[in-house]
């Protein structure tokens, strides 16, 4: 799903050696801003996503809410999560959050992935799955704090939002942004989007009385390339289970990049050990051994 002419790779899953073409182009980090306070839940972004990516249609699930289906699917990457929330003061809120890949700065999926080049991160921050390299192990599912990668049992590949890397590579905004009628979705550089988000949060706090309004850009995973403005940034869980402190399992950091090479080397010491034993101590032979002769040089013999 990539266009290698315009998207430079920054990180590659399970790749040994340097990253091809690293650092040859200047670039800035992109970001999608989702302002949950102005989302009306029209789901134009859902349709735009399915349309642009030519995803096959799948049945929706009606559960007496304004949510299309319980969670994203391998062929449905963009879902408005709906929650009817009653505040402490009795007011009812309809919380709508556009759920999709967060394009983490430190992607748990990429860390967990054992297949060379199956998950790449571009210098602009987009995390993209390369299905032709995917081996279908689903480790990325356990690495992701947002339950985003979805496995297709038929193709045995994992799929998710690409942040329209094909469009962004050609200088276009993602399809969901293009479709949004209220302007609650914005796309631009990470710095610009953070500035707009913070300005909006300040406005919500100062003018609209949402004292806990804030920006969701979790630093536990180095920030994300999709950021949210929330009415209540202290309770992101209310917005369809957005984790407050998303974490990559420790095993994907400690084990994979430290213990694996170290312990792999230790296992090779077993091989070295037996070789040294053969040379320095020699084999144990059945007794009695034949009597030893003085060694003569066979070459001159």
């Amino acid at each position: 799903m990539s266009d290698r002419r315009t998207l430079q790779i920054k990180q590659m899953s399970a790749h040994s050696g340097p990253i091809p073409g690293e650092g040859v182009q200047r670039g800035f980090e992109v970001c999608k801003l989702v302002d949950t306070t102005t989302c009306i839940g029209c789901k134009a972004c859902e349709v735009a996503c399915v349309e642009w990516n030519d995803l096959p249609f799948s049945a929706t699930t009606f559960d007496n809410t304004y949510q299309t289906m319980p969670e994203t699917r391998w062929n449905f990457w963009n879902l408005i999560k709906f929650n009817e929330h009653q505040r402490a003061d009795g007011a009812i809120q309809w919380l709508m959050r556009k759920d999709q890949c967060m394009h983490c700065a430190d992607p748990g999926c990429l860390r967990a992935c054992p297949a060379d080049g199956a998950i790449v991160q571009y210098t602009n921050g987009i995390v993209d799955f390369q299905q032709e390299n995917c081996i279908g192990c689903e480790f990325c599912v356990s690495g992701c704090p947002f339950e985003i990668p979805k496995f297709n049992k038929t193709t045995k590949k994992v799929y998710k939002c690409t942040l329209c890397s094909d469009r962004v590579g050609q200088g276009l905004e993602p399809a969901c942004i293009k479709a949004c009628p209220t302007g609650c979705l914005k796309f631009g550089s990470k710095d610009d989007m953070k500035f707009i988000a913070e300005t909006r949060a300040t406005q919500l706090r100062d003018i609209f009385g949402f004292e806990k309004a804030g920006v969701y850009d979790p630093q536990s995973i180095g920030g994300t390339h999709v950021i949210y403005v929330l009415h209540d940034a202290t309770q992101p869980e209310l917005y369809g289970g957005l984790p407050k402190d998303p974490q990559i399992p420790w095993s994907y950091t400690v084990w994979k990049w430290l213990a694996k090479p170290v312990l792999g080397t230790f296992a090779l010491f077993g091989l070295l050990g037996v070789c040294l034993h053969y040379v320095m101590v020699g084999p144990r032979r059945p007794q009695p051994e034949p009597l030893e002769k003085e060694a003569t040089d066979g070459n001159r013999g």
Binding site: E138, V141, S142, G143, C144, P249, W250, S251, F266, F269
Partner: peptide, 30 residues
């Protein structure tokens, strides 16, 4: 996979799986 057993059980399992394999790898040389 994580869909059935949860994220953490997969993340822990693959470490234990690897440790077991490394022990047997060391053993097989001997």
């Amino acid at each position: 996979g994580a869909g059935t057993f949860g994220r953490m059980s997969v993340a822990v399992s693959y470490v234990l799986h690897d440790i077991s394999a490394l022990m047997m790898l060391g053993g097989i040389f001997i």
